[in-house]
């Protein structure tokens, strides 16, 4: 067994919270630059220009690129040969607490009914899996509400098949319009159960922008959906244009013979992801 101190986890999580908020990953930034080159709408080009200038300022000055620094979502892969010296979730929450304070990030988490802010952006949402090895891998994906609120899940009838999936995904994006700050990336979960499907959609967003699913059938579906979505004409910020989505990422899982769950998780252009391995 390898001993890992929860203090190290807290320190890493603190740093990840801050760097995710301020420093856009190269996959997203290059996708946005490429989109500006291709965009036909003058206003759309202008919007993409502002988005690019914004993440450049944020990175250079260490400022949050968006004021909605999100609810803190983590995917943790815990090696089965790791021995932790304390509770994992407490360590993560303490890191969030410090990161949001030290980084001057907005605390955006509240009681669902009373709407009273918890004051420190905790509790974090943590998805944990046990894997081989003696490492702890922590991925952070802070999520703003503008795009999360436009996400949808539907239990389709199996008879609706691929056509049903397409129309549900495209309709979700059409309804979202300019709200989720397009250009967006779409995480689509297909199959599993009600909750598995939602997690698949979220996980799909962690893939570097534009990477393809290994399954050729899904690659085709990703390409078809991307074309259909960009044909909607919503464009950057919904002002009209060719770039509504930068990519569609699908993750699939076997499901019950009587079900076809589909989840669409929308990610805005502030697609903030960071990871660390301890």
């Amino acid at each position: 067994m390898r001993q890992v101190s929860t203090k190290d986890i807290t320190d890493k999580v603190r740093d990840l919270c801050i760097s995710a908020a301020c420093d856009l990953d190269p996959d997203m930034s290059s996708a946005l630059r490429a989109a500006r080159e291709k965009e036909e709408s003058p206003l759309g080009k202008e919007v993409l220009g502002q988005i690019i200038e914004n993440f450049e300022i944020a990175g250079a000055e260490g400022l949050p690129m968006c004021q909605d620094t999100g609810i803190s979502v983590f995917f943790v892969e815990l090696g089965r040969d790791v021995a932790l010296d304390g509770p994992l979730y407490d360590a993560i929450n303490e890191g969030v607490r410090r990161g949001y304070k030290d980084g001057y990030l907005r605390k955006s988490v509240c009681h669902p009914l009373k709407r009273i802010n918890t004051g420190d952006n905790t509790p974090a949402i943590v998805h944990t899996s046990i894997v081989e090895g003696d490492k702890v891998k922590i991925k952070i994906a802070p999520k703003g509400a503008g795009s999360e609120n436009m996400s949808r899940l539907k239990m389709l009838k199996p008879a609706e098949g691929v056509e049903g999936i397409k129309s549900f995904v495209v309709e979700t994006v059409r309804e979202a319009g300019g709200n989720p700050c397009p250009p967006i990336v779409l995480g689509v979960g297909i199959g599993g159960s009600f909750e598995k499907c939602a997690i698949l959609a979220k996980k799909a967003l962690l893939r570097p922008v534009g990477t393809k699913n290994p399954d050729p059938d899904l690659v085709q579906l990703e390409a078809d959906l991307l074309r259909m979505i960009n044909d909607l004409g919503i464009g950057p910020m919904g002002f009209g244009g060719r770039t509504t989505a930068l990519a569609v990422h699908i993750e699939a899982h076997p499901c019950h013979i009587a079900s076809l769950p589909v989840a669409v998780n929308i990610q805005c252009h502030a697609g903030r992801h960071k990871e660390a391995v301890i």
Binding site: E61, Q67, M237
Partner: peptide, 27 residues
């Protein structure tokens, strides 16, 4: 509409800010 997510850029045009009500609401 302002460009959503262009928060660090828009910030540059804000020269002064003062709270006029509901300080308890924080942001």
């Amino acid at each position: 509409a302002a460009v959503g997510g262009a928060a660090a850029l828009i910030r540059r045009s804000i020269k002064k800010a003062e709270i006029v009500a509901y300080e308890d609401l924080g942001p």
